[in-house]
Write a protein that binds this DNA or RNA. Structure first.
Length: 260
DNA sequence: ATGCCTCAGCTCCTGAGA
């Protein structure tokens, strides 16, 4: 089973690249089974369900105008679909969950937070708290669980191109990392770090200042897996290929392969 | 340098992203 997460920064703009990437994986003999998308930036009526259907994917989606928006594509239909965090009142479309082939898959677009101390940062902290309480409950009924998406949080200095210059800036603060570690403490694992990785592995690069070419990036897109999946993990990589497209998303897909 | 890109939209500037 192959799962991936990709913040596409507008699905309208990126749809051809998503379809091309999915087709390339299939052509290579390892099709993607589940793909979580973030930042659709479109209302539900604009979602290109027919294009994904033609490519062999069922879809669940949860959009909104201009910002946010998430979707879950899968080769077999997802069941028990949940949109946003139950019990957490939110007017932004950030979470979509579904069960695919016995695995509970949660795709999420975590709040950016803008700047420590801002109202948006406070919202990020509350959202993270709400997410954790829900995941804790989800794990009780779904031992095989994958939580993947754009976390907008780095784990540590390995995830930063400039650990000194970016110390305590957004995505790299102790408060944000506290919540990330608290998710891990529920019994989740950062699948990426279960494997040896190239130095300076990132999943996002600023569009400005030739960020990608100079590898000035952050690793903020993650795939966390539950204990029951840990020993079934075969690989986790960042696929930088799509970032080399002419009009790329600022994020690259992160891909997890399970022995399932 | 409260900028540098990119995207959406009440579009020719602004807000937001990260």
């Amino acid at each position: 089973m192959k799962l991936a997460t990709w913040n596409v920064n507008s699905l309208s703009v990126r749809l051809p690249q998503v379809l091309e990437w999915l087709a390339a994986q299939e052509a290579a003999g390892a099709p993607v089974d589940v793909l979580a998308l973030q930042e659709l930036k479109m209302t539900d009526d604009k979602f290109p369900a027919a294009a994904f259907q033609a490519a062999g994917y069922c879809a669940q989606w949860f959009g909104q105008k201009t910002y946010n928006g998430v979707a879950l594509l899968s080769r077999t239909p997802a069941t028990d679909v949940v949109k946003n965090i139950p019990g957490f009142d939110d007017d932004m479309a950030r979470v979509i969950a579904g069960t695919v082939d016995g695995v509970r898959v949660i795709g999420a677009y975590f709040p950016n937070g803008q700047e420590p101390g801002s109202d948006k940062f406070e919202y990020k902290m509350e959202w993270l708290k709400g997410l954790r309480h829900w995941i804790k409950v989800e794990l009780q009924s779904h031992p095989k669980l994958v939580l993947m998406g754009d976390y907008n949080i780095t784990f540590d200095e390995l995830d930063m191109w400039d650990p000194i210059g970016l110390k305590d800036t957004i995505h790299c603060t102790e408060e944000e990392r506290y919540h990330l570690r608290a998710l891990i403490a529920l019994g989740l694992h950062d699948s990426f770090r279960l494997f040896e990785q190239p130095p300076k592995s990132f999943s996002w690069w600023d569009y400005r200042d030739m960020g990608f070419r100079r590898n000035r990036g952050l690793r903020i897109d993650h795939i966390l897996i539950s204990n029951a999946l840990k020993d079934l993990t075969l690989a986790c990589i960042v696929d930088k290929g799509p970032r080399k497209n002419e009009r790329p998303s600022d994020h690259a897909p992160v891909v997890l392969t399970l022995n399932l």
